[in-house]
Design a protein around this nucleic acid. Structure first.
Length: 350
DNA sequence: CCTGCCGGGTT
DNA sequence: AACCCGGCAGG
């Protein structure tokens, strides 16, 4: 059985039964101050479980707001933006230069996109953060129906990020499979247009699918929550192992364009949102508070001060109460992992 | 002395 | 990688 929390004050229990829908029970519990979550099943049983910080965060992305769990018939009012998001995904996919068809010399034109081996940054844009796909394998792509369901769900910022990445992977996989050498096929739903040049394909998507005449695409992507939100989501996801993240998380800021921010993460870490979903672990009040209050701020801090990558620097004593003080030595099992290992506390970071 | 956590060792 | 702990620094 998997227990999830969809949003503050709204708990959801999802059983492993085939009749999930009928067994889903939602209850507004308010914001309890305890360490564990608690839930009532429809059997009348009351179940308490430790809530994982990652699980909480992840599931807030997966089951956002009032929709609770996957209700197939639900259509979000925000789905009207999906065309735009789809366009962004298609273009993002397009920006991933196919290794199979790209010999050492890449047809990089002025204003053309970068290869996805390292960055997706469009040199013609600003404020377009990018992913390093790293070791992410395109093989396990979600089904079309699942994609559609996710697209139709109301999304918060985190889900946008997940959507973007997953969709990019899938589109890239589909494109790599279906493409003949040197040709680009438009993956816009219902459009099978094949062009030989990347620039032409970009133009095709812009004009036909976005209805834009000139360089509006990057701006559309830039201004969408899809791109704006992802870094903070990533940050939230990885706070659990923050003390290990000094090296893996790399933030680079382009000197030329102040808003161009490139996030480089190891592939396995990027997949964590999907893998962490069924997990369940104890979460503290502090962790919940941290996720609610400080995570967005931290993302901004990350963007503003990328020099944090240096780990050897010993910080002065912060003001925050750490697990040791909050729980005491006698409740050491409730400490965060880092505190138990005498590492820098990641539940109550300074 | 208490606390936080770095650095390094062990499993 | 996960886990543990000696020892150091700050308060």
């Amino acid at each position: 059985m998997a227990a999830v929390r969809s949003s503050p004050g709204l708990d959801v229990v999802q059983t492993g039964s085939k009749r999930e829908d009928s067994l889903i029970n939602m209850q507004s519990c308010g914001q309890e101050e305890g360490v564990s979550g608690q839930k009532r099943l429809n059997t009348g049983q009351r179940i308490e479980w430790p809530v994982d910080a990652n699980t909480q965060q992840t599931n807030r992305q997966s089951f956002p707001q009032s929709s609770g769990v996957d209700l197939p018939t639900y259509r979000s009012p925000e789905s009207v933006e999906m065309d735009e998001i789809m366009a962004a995904m298609v273009l993002t996919s397009l920006s991933c230069s196919p290794v199979v068809q790209s010999p050492p010399q890449r047809d990089l034109l002025p204003g053309d996109m970068e290869c996805c081996g390292g960055e997706l940054s469009d040199s013609g844009s600003s404020g377009y953060w990018s992913w390093d796909h790293g070791s992410v394998s395109p093989a396990p792509s979600p089904s079309v129906t699942e994609m559609d369901r996710r697209l139709s769900q109301p999304t918060d910022e985190g889900l946008h990020m997940e959507l973007d990445q997953t969709a990019c992977e899938e589109l890239e996989a589909r494109r790599c499979k279906s493409l003949s050498r040197g040709a680009y096929r438009c993956l816009w739903p219902g459009c099978e247009k094949v062009l030989t040049s990347r620039v032409g394909m970009k133009r095709h998507i812009r004009i036909l699918h976005l209805g834009q005449t000139t360089a509006g695409c990057q701006d559309a992507v830039q201004s969408s929550p899809l791109s704006q939100s992802a870094p903070s989501s990533v940050w939230q996801i990885h706070t659990e192992h923050l003390y290990q993240a000094c090296a893996p998380i790399q933030v680079t800021v382009s000197p030329g364009s102040p808003t161009l921010c490139s996030w480089t993460l190891p592939g396995d870490v990027q997949q964590k949102p999907q893998m962490a979903a069924p997990r369940s672990r104890s979460v503290s009040v502090g962790e919940q508070w941290l996720q609610r209050n400080s995570a967005p701020t931290r993302s901004q801090t990350m963007s503003a001060s990328p020099s944090r990558g240096h780990c050897s620097f010993r910080k002065g004593r912060g003001e925050a109460k750490k697990c040791r003080k909050v729980y005491g030595v006698e409740r050491r099992d409730q400490w965060c992992t880092a505190c138990r290992w005498k590492k820098a506390c990641q539940r109550f970071p300074d």
